[in-house]
Design a protein around this nucleic acid. Structure first.
Lengths: 362, 362
DNA sequence: AATTGGTTCTGGACCGTTACGGTCAGGCAA
DNA sequence: TTGCCTGACCGTAACGGTCCAGAACCAATT
């Protein structure tokens, strides 16, 4: 008997002459029926080609999808190439795996603002990773009646959060540079908003940046240098839309062309810093003797390059986000997890050469 | 009026005094109702806190989940650290994104054989990437009544497939080494089955390997060397369960300890080859003068190291898998896509030193 | 004989939506 | 007037399960 439409619980039950509940129990609660009947049920299922209870129908009834949604927004390639994002992804995936939950990557078409995908995702909760705070997808996620965790984002009313203290971490790094004697510094930062800008970013753009992480890091720098009398308005900040080593190099070039007297380039990510290193090498500048370069993230590649940077626990961030979401025991009030960072003393930061040294040097 | 239970299409319709269909249309088919009524519906929805049609209920009714399942089986960390797997993942994600489909990573608990997660996933199809052919998760996927694409796997009856010709690619690489004069070679390969073996793998184990890719690559080598009279039973094959550079180094050490006369180490992945390079350096062996080392995959890191290897289009593999699955137009018969590979002439392969040279050499 | 308790199985009520095939009113041409 | 068409909306029937409160049955106790 060839069935056009595949078998269902009901058709199986009819075939066996038992109730649907019993068939359901055969799959989900073996202790609720006799082993003999259960055997018959499963055997008949095999014979009829019944693939087991439909996951979607089950989800509807049980109100559990068994999956966590992940919103990345960024061009996906970014997430799969950036070691920091990858670490986060891995941590989150591990947490999900540990809890037997799937991880549902929500497709985001960067072209048109296809918020529909957020509404289509059958998930029990969302993790939102580093999207601009005015992103419509974020708004769509928040409109869904499921628990949400944001990461590397500003606090959202009533939503759990995982992150680091970007501002304090960058402040500490700046203090280190200040102690070394640097006063004339340039900054290379990642995109500050959704619109492309591959040049300098003025104070206003910095302060109204929609990417919380970048905004906080810049603020930390401004704080620290302000304390020692360096007017932040005088500090050039080169912004790059794409996050690549090549962009870091280009931004470094732009800064050094504009002001050759800079003694240090502070980059808001390791990827950018690695590019800056390349550019310095290209110009015959020795690091750290002629130029200090710092990064942020603490990715393995940076470690290999001996970069002075701030290490943040990316894997832990992902795990923490997962735990927060999955262990969501009716949390009385939204929680926040702030992970520790660590200043990594590499070999790319040293005292600046004084003007004399630079003039009479070798 | 505070509602304990969230609003539904039905309650919204009741509140408005219209039918559920009309509310549904307000969201899904705006042309089916007057703009004025639609406005009222959406406004009331906002007022009642109705978040829009429930994705799971919709999926049940429309029989579309809007997502593709991905089965990796391996410890997830592997997938996120291995550049080849990552490239595949990125390609697949891009294809999904392009089609507006989500990518659902199926959680696999490596400890207990938790096939249930496969049955719980609400997806429209599956991609299975490089799992052993006797994996119960694979069987579970095949039992689900949804289209499936396997990648880097042997052909499965009635299932689409994406892959490369591992056997031919390795055969070509072997011919290159043979042309260079190598006869005494050792092999470092990845895990051949689900049980851990961190030592030599005999012929039987090789031929009954459950990982298709490894089996095919070894077969390609055996073919080629057999042709020039090298008995494959004499060729030592060192297997490693974990896929890491450290394991590659350890395997290389084991081979060289056992037979110092080996002139070439053929590794079935770049990661392993990079480890072998490290081990050679540690022993003071010059590559390629004293020892030839080859890899497989063509990952960026290998390129940087100048490794002689086989490049396979990992990103394309992922994209192809996605297209095959998503463009699944009632395919008359299962299709197969075999992508091209390319032999990369690096700087880690050279003619072997003759025994004299080695004896009297510098 | 009546009660108790346990196991095994049943029937019907949901879960929240969309597909399908209508109905109904009004406009317009013949 | 009649007939036909179109736009706007509606009612019902799925979609494929799980949950819950009991029923039927049987053995053991009171």
């Amino acid at each position: 008997m060839h069935m056009r439409r595949p078998a269902t619980l009901a058709s199986l039950a009819a075939e066996l002459g038992v109730s649907r509940t019993t068939v359901s129990n055969a799959y989900n609660r073996p202790d609720q029926l006799s082993p003999e009947l259960r055997r018959r049920v499963l055997e008949t299922a095999r014979r009829l080609g019944y693939p087991g209870p439909d996951p979607v129908a089950r989800s509807l009834r049980t109100r559990k999808a068994g999956a966590v949604g992940l919103l990345l927004t960024e061009n996906l390639s970014y997430a799969f190439r950036d070691p920091a994002a990858l670490g986060f992804l891995e941590g989150l995936a591990l947490a999900c795996e540990g809890a037997g939950q799937g991880l549902h990557l929500v497709p985001v078409n960067p072209e048109r603002e296809d918020v529909a995908a957020v509404h289509r995702a059958g998930v029990d909760g969302f993790v939102v990773y580093s999207v601009p705070d005015d992103d419509p997808h974020l708004a769509a996620v928040l409109s869904r009646p499921v628990p949400t965790v944001v990461c590397d984002q500003p606090r959202v009313e009533g939503v759990d959060r995982v992150g680091i203290d970007d501002r304090a971490a960058m402040h500490e790094l700046a203090e280190r540079l200040i102690a070394l004697g640097h006063r004339r510094v340039g900054v290379v930062c990642m995109r500050l908003a959704r619109d492309r800008n591959d040049s300098f970013a003025g104070l206003e753009r910095q302060q109204s940046a929609h990417f919380h992480v970048q905004r906080a890091r810049l603020a930390g720098l401004a704080d620290a240098f302000g304390t020692v009398g360096v007017a932040w308005t005088d500090v050039p900040v080169a912004e790059r839309f794409d996050h690549s080593s090549a962009c870091g190099a280009a931004a470094a070039a732009q800064l050094l062309d504009t002001d050759p007297e800079l003694t240090a380039l502070i980059c808001t990510s390791d990827i950018l810093a690695l590019g800056a290193l390349t550019e310095a090498r290209r110009r015959g500048l020795r690091v750290p003797q002629d130029l200090t370069i710092t990064g942020f993230d603490g990715i393995p590649e940076a470690e290999r390059a001996g970069l002075t940077t701030v290490r943040q626990p990316v894997l832990e961030k992902g795990k923490a986000a997962g735990k927060l979401l999955l262990g969501a025991v009716d949390h009385g009030r939204p929680r926040q997890i702030v992970l520790q960072t660590e200043l990594v003393t590499g070999s790319t930061a040293a005292p600046p050469r004084s003007a004399e040294e630079r003039w009479f040097g070798p």
